[in-house]
């Protein structure tokens, strides 16, 4: 099967395939391999004395060279590709990232608007919570009207001149006489507007304008008395000392337009 030949150096060649042969060197006990892969000459000792094994190793070696060559080629090719490719433009990439993030944020914010706005008071709630008008012309001096605004009873008192004279006399008996804002606690010299909710536990204080000794006060000059826990307020809603309620009756936002009182709109 194999042709045997002896060249001039006395080396014994065993031809296997084209560009592929085994040979023996004088001073070596082993078979040597000769490979010509794509015109490149490779020689090495196969480190075996067995011819069959040497043959097998030679084939393996050839495969190895072919494989690694092709791998190298591939790598080189890839390197070339990378070199040929334009470099990543990081500035451009960053700009794109920023603009798309911004656009994303705008989109999220845009979508959030309807969802968050849905939580605002609806038109119905706004209508129910809107300001209320009250005609003051029919309210006699000394009388009180109760107007409902935002589910709260609002007391509208038409003060008598007697009552207004008496208010300063009570300055020492109330916790907070509100001398700076005026003892009548009103922008109008006739009408006082108060939230009819006791500042103690939100009971409804009763209107007692009469000036006469009462069970709860010997020197009663008119005012509000809360039947729940005995809190006393004068006709301007100022709280008496020594009662459970801590603060004066609240004054709701209101304004006067001629004979009309508008509750719910600040002056």
């Amino acid at each position: 099967m194999f042709k045997m030949s002896k060249n001039k150096q006395g080396k014994k060649h065993i031809h296997i395939l084209d560009g592929m042969s085994l040979y023996i060197r004088d001073k070596s006990p082993f078979y040597w391999g000769y490979l010509n892969v794509d015109g490149e000459i490779h020689k090495k000792s196969l480190k075996t004395k067995d011819k069959k094994e040497a043959e097998k190793l030679l084939f393996d070696w050839k495969n190895e060279l072919l494989y690694s060559d092709s791998l190298n080629d591939l790598n080189e090719k890839l390197d070339m590709d990378v070199k040929d490719k334009p470099r990543v433009d990081n500035t451009r990439r960053k700009a794109l990232m920023i603009t798309s993030s911004l656009m994303g944020a705008v989109t999220v914010a845009g979508f959030a608007v309807p969802f968050l706005s849905a939580w605002n008071p609806s038109e119905k709630a706004k209508a129910l919570g809107a300001s209320v008008k009250f005609d003051l012309s029919k309210l006699e001096p000394g009388a009180m009207a109760v107007v409902e605004w935002r589910r709260t009873p609002i007391f509208v008192v038409h003060q008598t001149s007697k009552a207004l004279e008496n208010l300063p006399k009570l300055n020492d008996r109330v916790t907070d006489p509100v001398l700076s804002e005026g003892v009548a606690r009103s922008t109008n010299d006739k009408f006082t507007v108060l939230k009819g909710v006791c500042t103690h536990l939100s009971c409804a204080p009763k209107y007692h304008p009469e000036i006469e000794p009462k069970a709860w006060d010997e020197q009663w000059l008119g005012g509000f008395f809360c039947p729940c826990h005995g809190s006393k307020f004068d006709l301007a809603g100022r709280v008496y000392k020594g009662v459970p309620a801590p603060t004066n009756l609240e004054v709701p936002p209101h304004k006067f337009e001629g004979d009309t009182l508008i509750i719910g709109e600040p002056t």
């Binding site: 939580w119 605002n120 008071p121 609806s122 709630a125 129910l128 919570g129 935002r150 589910r151 709260t152």
Partner: peptide, 17 residues
Amino acid sequence: QVWIQGDFVLSGITLSR
């Protein structure tokens, strides 16, 4: 507070949310 309540007082609107 008004936004959370959905009303000027605590009401049924608040209840359903």
